[in-house]
């Protein structure tokens, strides 16, 4: 199967002297291997090599330069003894849970609304998706301005007569994660809607007809029949949104820069700061390794379900 596409020269080789294993590995299908060289280099050097390098040096006491000696789990012990890291992790979990739930729920609701044979469907779709085309920096800066306590929405509504209106989330350590959430949902829910809508439209129309004949109300059909049928789309959305959340960085930099204080710090920012301005590479690498671990924990069950399951079904 794997060599299905190389029958022409492969056949010739078996009749003549069979070349050595090394020669075959190098020269069989040579143009394809040369063409795929950038991919192989990327995989070996970046995705495998750099990952191993990062994990390895996270166990050293590298400070300004990665030349330190092996210190076991010292960096990790320090990491979890640092309040800034712990705040970052707590923030990520809180933000991540809220973001995941709201993105999926809002995305699904929007997709259902769009799916109701409405007028101006493409206009509504365009409006919902355009934020996804913008960068997190633009997103963060616009919302920073809207939520600006002195001249933004809060002041505007107060000036319009709603004098005790309060919307200072961006400057309020307790509420700043919700500020982040508003901006994040603005950016990403349209994308989730597109995914969900594709899932909804993929449901066999005869299922809807059968449900109508059975007299099942529309909402019940969505909840009991269509939603469970969209498992594949839901899982895909979950993985994409989840891995996006772990990466959360640009938006925080633009919207709050981790503030007020350290109340909106996230791991990606912690790692970045230690690597490039904190002068403590070991700490940064240990943080990065923890991020990697998180993604592996998200990915492995998914990969098992998607690909492990497929093998059994066929």
């Amino acid at each position: 199967m794997a060599d299905a596409a190389v029958p022409l020269d492969a056949g010739a080789e078996t009749t003549v002297n069979r070349p050595s294993l090394l020669k075959r590995i190098l020269f069989n299908n040579l143009p394809a291997k040369i063409a795929a060289l950038p991919m192989m280099v990327t995989v070996l050097v970046v995705f495998v090599g750099c990952t191993i390098w990062t994990i390895y040096y996270s166990f050293t006491n590298s400070k300004l330069l990665p030349t330190g000696k092996f210190v076991g789990f010292d960096q990790y012990e320090r990491l979890f003894a640092t309040s800034r890291w712990n705040v970052s992790v707590t923030n990520l979990i809180a933000y991540g849970a809220m973001s995941l739930v709201f993105t999926l729920v809002v995305g699904f609701i929007l997709a259902v609304l769009i799916d109701q044979k409405i007028r101006f469907e493409s206009a509504f779709r365009t409006i919902m998706l355009y934020p996804f085309a913008l960068s997190f920096i633009v997103t963060g800066l616009v919302w920073q301005w809207i939520m600006n306590p002195t001249l933004g929405l809060q002041t505007t509504l107060r000036n319009l007569g709603w004098t005790n209106f309060s919307f200072d989330w961006i400057a309020n350590p307790r509420m700043v994660l919700f500020a982040l959430l508003i901006a994040g949902l603005w950016h990403g829910t349209g994308f989730c809607m597109v995914l969900m809508l594709a899932g909804l439209r993929g449901v066999d129309e005869e299922i809807w007809k059968a449900a109508r004949i059975d007299g099942i109300p529309t909402w019940r059909t969505y909840v009991s029949i269509v939603l469970p049928m969209m498992r594949g789309v839901l899982v895909t959305a979950l993985v994409i949104i989840g891995s996006g959340i772990v990466r959360l960085y640009d938006l925080v930099v633009a919207l709050t820069n981790g503030g007020p204080g350290i109340s909106s710090e996230v791991p990606a920012k912690y790692v970045f700061n230690y690597m490039f301005s904190g002068g403590n590479i070991g700490q940064g690498l240990a943080g990065a390794t923890m991020m990697l671990l998180t993604v592996v924990i998200i990915m492995v069950p998914w990969a098992y379900l998607e690909f492990g399951g497929k093998g059994r079904r066929t």
């Binding site: 090599g49 990606a268 690597m275 940064g284 690498l285 991020m291 993604v295 998200i298």
Partner: peptide
């Protein structure tokens, strides 16, 4: 799916 921070320094 791996966060970029893992590769950045190397």
């Amino acid at each position: 799916f791996i966060p970029y921070q893992v590769f950045l320094y190397p």
